[in-house]
Amino acid sequence: MTLLPDHLLAGYRQFVEGRYLAETQRYRALARDGQSPETMVIACCDSRAAPETIFGAGAGELFVVRNVANLVPPYHPDGDFHGTSAALEFAVQALRVRHIVVMGHGRCGGIKAALDTEAAPLSPGDFIGKWMSIVEPVARSIAGNELMTSAERQTALERISIRTSIANLRSFPYVAAREAAGDLTLHGAWFDISTAELWAMDAETGDFQRPLVDVDEGASAPDGAEAPGEAVLQSAG
């Protein structure tokens, strides 16, 4: 019997003999001085959309909280347990991050569940159902739109849920206060797993654009549209 799965131990060995060996001083400094990331990322717990990988971040660069469908609940202090709210409080009040990015992604299982009004709970507790009720009103509206295809409804809710989470971020008094003071900026992003395209939300219009393509070329694609994956490769070349 092994203490951990073999593939995890193999990965750990690779880390210790590779990245850690190359960045030993960095890790020691982080251990000694503590973390001071400038950016918090609120992402989905989907194994295919890891923020550190997507943004090429090293140790200590991102403060990441991941949950089902990268949702932020409204500010609601009570006696219950609030994991995402606790992480947000620490990031804003203790770490004093300067940016918060809500990052959604394509083919999100949580969003798919929110759109499936006929789905039965996975367990009697229905934790997923309760959590996804954060976007229930808009999910119900989109699910009933027969003019959209299933894929269009999925992408639409994935992106609208990002805007919903950003609105909920502003319901936290300390987030609103620091944003008003110009000390904190809120961002939305959406990642396409299939093409590796990254779309960022325009803070003024709410539209999503590809920062390496649309902004440079002065053209934006319609919300929910999928563009060829070659664009990312061309822009990086």
Results as ranks from 00 to 15, higher is better:
Ala143Lys: 00
Ala236Leu: 14
Gln234Tyr: 03
His99Lys: 12
Ala200Asn: 09
Cys44Ala: 03
Ala143Thr: 07
Ala143Asn: 03
Arg26Lys: 13
Arg13Ala: 12
Leu233Trp: 12
Ala31Thr: 12
Leu4Val: 13
Ala43Pro: 07
Val232Gly: 06
Asn70Met: 05
Gly110His: 00
Gly229Thr: 03
Ala94His: 15
Tyr20Ala: 14
Thr185Ala: 11
Ala119Thr: 09
Ala22Ile: 03
Asn145Cys: 05
Ala87Gly: 04
Ala87Lys: 00
Ala31Val: 13
Met132Lys: 00
Val175Leu: 04
Ala189Glu: 09
Arg170Ser: 00
Phe191Asp: 01
Pro137Thr: 06
Tyr20Gly: 07
Val64Lys: 03
Ile54Phe: 05
Thr195Leu: 09
Ala91Cys: 10
Phe191Met: 10
Met132His: 00
Thr185Gly: 01
Pro211Tyr: 05
Ser36Asn: 14
Gly34Asp: 08
Asn168Gly: 03
Ser141Glu: 15
Ala196Tyr: 13
Gly83Ala: 14
His187Trp: 04
Gly188Tyr: 03
Gly218Ala: 02
Gly34His: 11
Thr149Gly: 15
Glu38Met: 08
Asp46Tyr: 11
Ser141His: 11
Ile193Leu: 10
Asp207Tyr: 02
Ile160Leu: 03
Ala119Lys: 10
Pro73Ser: 14
Leu157His: 01
Gly18Pro: 05
Gln154Leu: 13
Gly11Ile: 14
Thr39Val: 07
Glu204Asp: 13
Thr155Trp: 10
Glu136Arg: 09
Leu88His: 05
Ala221Tyr: 08
Lys112His: 11
Tyr12Asp: 01
Trp131Arg: 03
Thr185Ser: 09
Val92His: 06
Ala227Asn: 09
Ile111Tyr: 04
Val72Asp: 07
Val41Trp: 12
Ile162Phe: 11
Gly224Pro: 08
Ala86Glu: 00
Ile54Tyr: 05
Glu226Asp: 12
Val92Phe: 05
Val215Ser: 10
Phe127Met: 09
Asp183Phe: 07
Glu152Asn: 05
Gln234His: 11
Tyr174Lys: 10
Met132Gly: 03
Glu23Met: 07
Leu198Ala: 01
Ala180Arg: 11
Trp199Ile: 02
Lys130Gln: 12
Ser141Met: 10
Ile142Trp: 00
Glu146Tyr: 01
Val213Asn: 06
Gln234Asn: 12
Leu3Asp: 13
Ala143Tyr: 00
Glu17Cys: 09
Ala50Gly: 10
Leu184Pro: 04
His82Gly: 01
Leu9Cys: 07
Val65Trp: 03
